[in-house]
């Protein structure tokens, strides 16, 4: 926008409705008036002095409409969810998060009832905790579960930023739930599962840029279940990979995963 303003003479001509104004001048003036509040106020002043007929007409119309305008109340638009909720969560994610909370609560009750004796040292919650947040991320970005996936996939916001947003909201719900759970039952410490779960999530995102997040997460869950969780469950002890001395390895995997996501950031809009 140019910072030039319309001249007083031009605005006066315009207010009078001067038919002699050139069409291009008129167009340029109107385009300028639409974007320039000071010139609009000068036009208002000019109408009052130059075209009293218009001013009285406007006043008459306003006087006629005033009772109706006072009576009209803008209907409040009915809104079931604040705007920021849909920006961070898809509606399908809400039932999933509720289910996760319920499952952890049930596990908590089981533990309180003395069930850990049945499971030995390897609490089932500890065995699923590393992959649970990743499953939530997979649900958040799933073609099969999200009815509006096709619509979302064609929008400019689709891609890594949206995926990360949804990942963050899943982690924000699931991680505290697991933390509280572990703290209350004493079955697991955050050191045992927190870093692995983040490493798994980043790995799912990184692999997801190649095969899709849902497939990547499913493959990782199967691998985890077959290679680590099932043998540990069978043996009734905490798997070796979840011992505290393995933390540097998980840390390295997390860094690797994040690095891969950053390196492949261009691949996400095409999912």
């Amino acid at each position: 926008m140019s910072t030039e303003h319309a001249s007083r003479r031009l605005i006066d001509d315009y207010a009078r409705g001067d038919a002699a104004m050139a069409a291009d001048t008129l167009w340029a003036l109107e385009a300028h008036l639409e974007t320039c509040a000071p010139c609009r106020s000068r036009l208002a002043a000019s109408v009052a002095t130059e075209a009293p007929g218009i001013a009285t007409l406007v006043d008459t119309v306003r006087a006629g409409l005033a009772p109706q305008l006072d009576a009209a109340v803008q209907a409040p638009s009915r809104r079931y969810r604040p705007r920021w909720v849909s920006a961070w969560l898809t509606p399908i994610l809400v039932p999933w998060l509720a289910m996760t909370a319920t499952v952890t609560l049930l596990a908590l009750l089981l533990a309180a009832a003395g069930a850990p004796m049945l499971f030995g040292a390897a609490s089932p919650v500890l065995l699923i905790a590393p992959v649970l947040p990743m499953c939530g991320v997979a649900v958040a970005w799933s073609r099969a579960l999200d009815p509006a996936y096709e619509l979302t996939a064609a929008t400019p916001r689709a891609g890594l930023p949206l995926l990360l947003r949804r990942t963050v909201s899943v982690l924000a719900v699931v991680l505290p739930a697991l933390l509280v759970e572990g703290w209350l039952t004493g079955a697991m410490t955050a050191a045992q599962w927190l870093l692995p779960s983040l490493a798994f999530t980043s790995a799912a995102l990184a692999l997801g840029s190649v095969v899709g997040v849902t497939r990547a997460a499913a493959a990782l869950v199967v691998a985890w279940g077959v290679v680590i969780a099932a043998p540990a469950w069978h043996a009734g002890r905490v798997p070796v990979v979840l011992q505290p001395d393995q933390l540097p390895v998980w840390g390295a995997l997390l860094v690797l995963g994040i690095g891969a996501v950053i390196a492949r950031r261009r691949a996400y809009p095409a999912l």
Binding site: S77, R78, R79, Y80, R81, R83, S86, A87, T90, P91, I92, D146, P147, A148, Y149, E150, L151, T152, T155, P156, R157, A158, L162
Partner: peptide, 22 residues
């Protein structure tokens, strides 16, 4: 066959899509 969120109102749905379209 476009999917949509059944619990959204029309306005919320179109608003959400507008947000996605930046």
């Amino acid at each position: 066959e476009f999917g949509y969120y059944k619990r959204f109102t029309v306005r919320e749905f179109v608003e959400y899509m507008a947000w996605l379209k930046e």
